[in-house]
Design a protein around this nucleic acid. Structure first.
Lengths: 408, 408
DNA sequence: CGGCGTTTGTATCTTTATGCAACATATTAA
DNA sequence: TTAATATGTTGCATAAAGATACAAACGCCG
């Protein structure tokens, strides 16, 4: 409730800050010696040593046993440093995706490695929130032995809904939810008291795809998840940009064609449903799949190519419009429909260059290769990120709830 | 060159951080006593006292003499605190806008009060960069006595150009510049060594309109500056969002009408030029002004109203599209064309609600009332903001350039 | 008018984390 | 074997915030 960005550093806070910085550096760059860490953090070697001692005592960091005695030749003079690493299974985080047709769960460790996943079919439309939460929590915990449970440091939920920062869902049209406090419901359904965060599925996906990767740590990345619906998320300098009400990046609702009478948004043009509807009109098959369509495009079947061409055009328009506003330097395509992109990359590029003024830079377009658990993974990463920050539960000693009201 | 967001706080850094936090609090909330400051910053009263002592010694803060002995009744029990305030003329900052038709300069003090302004006609199209910089610098300094000059702590430049964070201009179509290091040119042209920042004029305008105002400190605000051209800027939680190459928010180039054959962008539809071109076709006057047009709209002259209606429709479309992507909660209209908005607010709202899905929240639209120096003021604010941060020149003691290369 | 509670500002002392310097250690180069 | 170099550790100095106590300034109330 207090003023953001005005918090002063106290004497204890500084150590917390540095411990967090050390953990983040070890996560981002992998194994580092104490001296390397000191340089990265612009600290003294001895301070670095003290911080590592704390973290080692907490069981979060350990000295790595280096198997390859002489790695890649260049051995510098001087005593070699002892590499340090995060202890992967010191703690773990859970991620849950409550989708429309399935529930997925992920367990990740301190190194953000995926330890296990579960997927279960699910009919989100015919079930209420409480029941959905119950099933999701049960699935997430089913393979975790009780003894391990206390090492859980957080759970993230992702779902196709518009929600605020606190996990209060305003509206989830696909699931029929409205004004439910999802994060709180999940907290109550859990047998343990751990931090719980909730986020829109596309946003969670975007977090998962960028989190921890140092390449994309600065800049603006636009994520597009194309399935039946088209969702999106924006990552600015490695952090999710939610917008005022968590809707930033939802470019599926961008209006692309304002043909009088039939205005259509991007989702209606590049989503799976439109593609398949058009394809069914021309395909000889009785019940064609998206895979059939891809094959037809690859074999240059004119009817399929023409559908793909329209898709490429709409996609290009949507991307140009979006970049005119957020000025992204990287675009990542995900979702099953993204498989069409490699076949049409040249056409998309052509449309982009035809549409926009030549003086504008245009971002790199890449594809995301993660599987179906991407969104649940991202939700889990949110808690990993939180743990490696000053809001970490590690630092919540007593000062948890002190609310001091002051008058103006 | 080092890793962002990973910098550790050293022992000196903590004090710097707290001094900066104190200055910011005094700027944002006005007069505060030491005890109030301690509460706001979650510091101990005695620490607050120490920090204030430092700042007072530096001449940046002083105890305010309170004229009204008994203000508004409610005098709480206990010893009353001594209010502290920034010393306005301890230091000052300059802002310069190099426009297409004029150069404006502003001087602001530590309280971000405007001390003086200068405006001069200028033909940006027929002059090269060096000459423009020379004239701008001269105008900015003309009313500053030499004795005062050493209290200058920075100068900001704003200009209609696409530039990077370092003030390197890639392209300025209206001025005919390309690949010039504007910030460096200005630095060299100055008789004093002070920090110089450069920014796109619309971005600078957005900064100036939000800076220091606590109301809009969190959330997403979209600024629209409508003149001949249409520029824009996005403020996220009180900070400018530049995008990957400084083009974020430039929604003038959004494509609004994709009528086959004549694709038109937002600037072409809602900019001053289009309005006047349409108005000239119908007006009885030989050389009509925008003021004439406004009057005609106000008097419900059908031909003018129909132009305004088209304008409202295009504006609504542009705003809806933009909000679909960045999810703003506030929109601020500026520039001379904004004067048309109050007359058309209801129509704009109608178009917005007709265009977008009802479940989407829509931001508040307000008008900006600042005069012609808004952009120069914003440029000056950038340096005020920098001074009240850890990058402040106050803290640049010796450690200025130490570049330590490290290997992977 | 004078005690009483309350809040503020300050002085003194303690705590804590970093920086610095020195040193033992481990490795390469000569 | 010696010199050079980088690492990890240790003891000490420093700096800044927190804790505590106390004088000062005010309203309230009898």
């Amino acid at each position: 409730m207090n003023d953001p960005a005005l918090t002063a550093s106290s004497n204890r806070r500084i150590r917390q800050n540095n411990e967090v910085a050390a953990l983040r550096a070890l996560h981002q760059f992998g194994r580092l010696s104490r001296a390397e860490l000191a340089r990265k953090l612009r600290l003294n070697r001895s301070s670095s040593g003290h911080i590592i001692a704390s973290l080692t005592a907490d069981g979060l960091v350990r000295e790595a046993i280096e198997d390859p005695p002489e790695q890649s030749g260049h051995a510098r003079a001087g005593r070699p440093g002892i590499k340090l690493e995060l202890v992967p299974d010191a703690i773990f985080f859970l991620g849950v995706e409550i989708g429309v047709e399935h529930i997925s769960t992920v367990e990740i460790d301190l190194g953000t490695n995926i330890v296990s996943t579960n997927v279960e079919p699910f009919d989100g439309r015919s079930i209420n929130v409480e029941a959905a939460v119950d099933r999701a929590v049960r699935l997430a915990l089913q393979s975790i032995p009780a003894s391990k449970l206390e090492r859980c440091e957080g759970l993230g939920v992702s779902t196709p809904a518009q929600m605020d920062k606190n996990g209060f869902v305003r509206l989830a049209p696909l699931l029929g939810w409205r004004n439910v406090h999802l994060a709180e419901l999940v907290r109550d359904a859990l047998p343990i008291r751990v931090p719980v965060l909730a986020e829109n599925d596309a946003n969670a996906f975007a977090i998962g795809a960028t989190y921890g990767r140092s390449e994309v740590h600065s800049g603006v990345t636009l994520f597009l998840v194309m399935e039946s619906g088209v969702g999106g998320g924006i990552i600015i300098d490695g952090n999710l940009f939610r917008g005022a009400s968590g809707l930033a990046g939802e470019i599926g609702h961008l209006i692309v064609s304002d043909a009088p009478g039939s205005r259509r948004n991007l989702e209606q043009l590049i989503g799976l449903e439109n593609i398949m509807a058009e394809y069914r009109k021309t395909s000889a098959l009785s019940d064609p799949t998206f895979g059939n369509f891809l094959a037809d495009v690859q074999h240059r079947l004119p009817s399929a190519v023409s559908i793909a061409e329209e898709w490429a055009k709409a996609l290009a328009t949507g991307l140009v419009q979006t970049c005119r506003i957020i000025d992204a330097d990287k675009i990542v395509l995900g979702g099953s429909v993204a498989a069409l992109y490699p076949l049409m990359a040249a056409r998309v590029a052509a449309h982009i260059h035809a549409t926009q003024e030549p003086s504008f830079p245009f971002p790199l377009i890449t594809m995301n290769d993660e599987g179906t658990v991407g969104s649940a993974f991202g939700a889990a990463c949110m808690l990993h990120q939180r743990y490696l920050s000053l809001e970490s539960p590690r630092f919540a000693d007593g000062t948890a709830e002190l609310e001091k009201a002051e008058e103006g």
